[in-house]
Design a protein around this nucleic acid. Structure first.
Length: 355
DNA sequence: AAATGTCACAACCGCCGCCAA
DNA sequence: GTTGGCGGCGGTTGTGACATT
């Protein structure tokens, strides 16, 4: 038969731990190790159940726990790992020395999750929240009001994509849906495909447009960013599946660029959109020590990650002193994407098609 | 200064897989 | 093979601190 009950729950204390209880637990574990959590409370003279002791130790009393605010790098790592692992907090914690799963979980729920939501990113899928993207209402507004409007106000969100791309995206999706009704739903269900096909090029364009103007770079990254962007957007439109960056210049600017502090403060890592290499042949494994999220591709394909998630390419260990500013507010981090949403309906866009 | 709202986080709850009996 | 406890995990809650009105 099964084992005897681990503990009689009657009479066991619950609620916050007192310093005396903490000290008893610490003393006992330092002398004997935790061994069996079941028998530990009795041996340590604690009126707690083993489970409570284990949680108190692993989440609070363990000597290797790093307290204090999460650094920018830690935050980025959490987002990256979450995009791959989901709510596997223990697995994420294993990659963040000194942080507990509980702490990471709390930080996610109270900070990162809210920020992603404010940005219009689904914190579960790490994709733009297409559920909020009511195309018909957007188009109605454009018809009955003006060709210039602010979707962020309409949606109450701050999506990362700018509207021309958003509408191109909508155009592509809807036309694809017309031609192949079975296309859209599977695409939406397939997270990998969703990220690759729908979002990354837009992200790429946004970031490329934003970064050169804001960065103090040691080299001039693009002689003509507009041409660069346009060429790639056009290519993406013509062949979204096999989209690769055609610019002949290297993306060395991102390797050499020094992110100005004001941008760093405002920059929100959205690393999920960079997990896929541009040749779509593989998913970069952030768990691998060899994955540097940076383009090493000699044919000038751009690794989206290296563009979109600038700090992720940093080899700086998590435990090192952060190069990045840790005291930035959430609003400051949000603001990076706050000014991209005013646009005019492009001439090519025939809204009547959708009415 | 008091009331109210919001945030942050420690701790609990409940479920699940593993494994001893 | 079955049962049921243990350890671990993720979700949720309770509460104190802080901010705002």
């Amino acid at each position: 038969m099964g084992r005897a009950p681990c503990c009689d729950k009657n009479g066991l204390k619950k609620g916050p731990w007192t310093p005396e209880e903490d000290q008893k637990l610490i003393d006992y574990i330092q002398k004997h190790g935790h061994g069996s959590w079941r028998t530990l409370p009795k041996n340590a003279g604690l009126q707690r159940c083993g489970k409570s002791c284990r949680l108190r130790w692993t989440n609070y009393l363990r000597p290797d726990i790093k307290r204090g605010r999460f650094s920018f790098e830690e935050e980025e790592t959490i987002i990256q790992l979450h995009s791959v692992l989901g709510n596997k907090w223990s697995a994420i914690a294993a990659r963040l020395p000194g942080r507990t799963d509980n702490e990471i979980k709390n930080y996610w729920n109270t900070h990162i999750r809210k920020r992603l939501l404010r940005m219009g990113i689904d914190p579960v899928t790490h994709s733009p929240r297409l559920d909020l993207l009511d195309i018909s209402s957007i188009l109605s507004s454009s018809l009955y009001n003006s060709s210039q409007f602010n979707v962020s106000r309409l949606l109450g969100i701050q999506p990362l994509v700018n509207q021309p791309d958003l509408l191109r995206l909508a155009t592509t999706l809807l036309s694809s849906q017309r031609e192949n009704p079975d296309f859209l739903i599977p695409a939406l269900q397939d997270q990998t495909q969703l990220n690759q096909f729908q979002f990354q090029p837009n992200q790429l364009q946004n970031q490329i447009q934003e970064l050169p103007a804001a960065c103090t770079t040691s080299t001039t990254p693009f002689s003509n960013e507009t041409q660069f962007v346009q060429a790639n957007v056009e290519q993406f439109q013509s062949n979204p599946i096999n989209f690769t960056c055609q610019n002949s210049q290297s993306n060395g600017w991102e390797e050499n660029a020094i992110m100005p502090s004001n941008l760093m403060e405002n920059f929100v890592p959205v690393p999920n959109y960079g997990y896929y290499s541009s040749d779509q042949s593989s998913i970069i494994d952030p768990l691998s020590d060899n994955s540097n999220f940076q383009s090493n591709n000699s044919n000038q394909n751009i690794s989206f990650t290296s563009v979109l998630s600038t700090p992720s390419s940093s080899p700086t260990p998590l435990n090192s002193n952060s190069t990045y500013i840790n005291s930035s507010t959430e609003d400051e981090r949000d603001s990076y994407c706050s000014n991209v949403l005013k646009f005019e309906i492009p001439d090519f866009f025939d809204v009547n098609e959708f009415m």
